[in-house]
Amino acid sequence: MREVLVDGSVDELGKALAEALEGGPAVLPLTPGSDELRKAMAPHEPVEPGTAVIIATSGSTGEPKGVLLSADALRASATATHQRLGGPGHWLLATPAQYIGGVQVIVRALLAGSTLASLPPGRFTGDLFAEAAAPIVAKDGPRYTALVPTQLTRILDAGGAGLAAAKAFDAIIIGAAATSAGLRERAAEAGVTIVPAYGMSETASGCVYDGVALDGVRVELASDGRILINGPVLTHGYRLRPDLTAEAFTDGWFRTGDRGQFTDGRLEVLGRIDDVINTGGVKVSAAAVERVLTGCPGVRESCVVGLPDPEWGELVAAAVVAEGPRPDVAVLRAAVRESAGAAAVPKRVEFVEALPLRGPGKVDRSAVVAKIFHPIG
């Protein structure tokens, strides 16, 4: 196993990935200070056969695990992505390189033999994005990058050089978190071409683009609405965890932790299987309430969680990031009541400057509960 610390330049990671794709040592990308994740990966134990990359992640449960990806899975994902976007192109790496989204940007550029530029880790602004994008924007041929919704929002808010650079990309993949209808509209109005993607480490990054599976990927729904995925992009298991591997796969199908539905032939992700809040005997989807709230004027982001309650069992609580002046809570509650029913109306609403994150753009729900709702008074 070849450990690569991702801190600043991604040259070393690019070289390691190039070797891994050709049968070299498996690559474990890490950031300085990620000692617990490193320890969980047992770097001195033999690597599972056929592994090119190990993505160390705490996942949605907080339990450290290593997702094993073969060179074939990485190649299949990158090739299908280029086919869907319009052919091989030049890439800007603008998300953390230790996660699958960042790794795949590098892999795509390697397989295309094209230019790869990168945004230094840390603070993200429209001007910094424009500066990093300059080498890509100057190239002929398709230009691509991948962002999380928060990054795109900042670019649209700031305008100027960052927005001009974003408009120069032939496609910007938006992943890691759901892309709201409002953000889609803002991007379209600004002339920015975005492609919302759904995927995870276990699928070698995005495998469903704008609701349609990539070539070679099959998506079905289980009886409970759970999203099932099959295809050459899948992981072949979890690092030293055959129990988790057996639990995640059924007859070659990967059992995600997400619920979905098909609307006009396109997959719509409805939220996590475990995001259901049981309040007064009524089951409420946290994701459904979040969609209503983020569709309200004056709301940029929201996170809905269930809090223990002696009367209701759980009560619905919403953390809201306002866009400009805070919207009237009564208006927000009325919108939820109309769209999702009385049981879904948040009994607690807290306005915050930003939602706590884990990983690139993913809201940390446990931190929302602990840091926003538990410290009362």
Rank of each mutant, 00 (worst) to 15 (best):
residue 336 V to H: 00
residue 143 R to P: 06
residue 251 D to N: 15
residue 46 P to T: 02
residue 317 A to L: 00
residue 296 C to W: 03
residue 168 A to G: 00
residue 49 P to N: 08
residue 205 S to K: 09
residue 3 E to D: 09
residue 193 T to E: 15
residue 104 Q to H: 08
residue 53 V to S: 11
residue 262 F to W: 14
residue 6 V to I: 07
residue 102 G to P: 10
residue 293 L to T: 03
residue 176 A to Q: 03
residue 287 A to Q: 07
residue 312 W to C: 09
residue 60 S to L: 03
residue 127 D to T: 13
residue 213 A to N: 04
residue 239 R to P: 00
residue 370 A to N: 14
residue 363 V to D: 09
residue 274 D to R: 11
residue 212 V to K: 14
residue 372 I to A: 00
residue 39 K to P: 03
residue 87 G to Y: 11
residue 43 P to D: 12
residue 298 G to V: 06
residue 14 G to D: 01
residue 268 E to L: 13
residue 258 D to K: 02
residue 28 L to W: 04
residue 327 P to W: 01
residue 119 L to G: 05
residue 199 G to W: 02
residue 192 V to G: 12
residue 28 L to F: 07
residue 236 H to F: 02
residue 184 R to C: 10
residue 314 E to T: 00
residue 277 I to V: 02
residue 178 A to Q: 15
residue 269 V to W: 10
residue 22 E to L: 14
residue 32 P to A: 07
residue 21 L to M: 11
residue 320 V to H: 01
residue 172 I to C: 06
residue 158 A to N: 08
residue 82 H to N: 14
residue 139 K to G: 07
residue 153 T to F: 15
residue 297 P to F: 08
residue 229 I to Q: 10
residue 350 E to Q: 14
residue 105 V to Q: 12
residue 114 S to I: 04
residue 157 D to S: 12
residue 21 L to F: 04
residue 319 A to E: 12
residue 172 I to D: 04
residue 355 L to T: 07
residue 121 P to C: 10
residue 310 P to W: 06
residue 351 F to G: 00
residue 110 L to R: 05
residue 151 Q to W: 04
residue 192 V to T: 05
residue 353 E to I: 01
residue 41 M to L: 15
residue 149 P to S: 07
residue 238 Y to T: 06
residue 325 P to R: 06
residue 89 G to V: 04
residue 192 V to K: 00
residue 309 D to I: 01
residue 125 T to E: 11
residue 231 G to W: 00
residue 150 T to E: 14
residue 73 A to W: 02
residue 173 I to M: 15
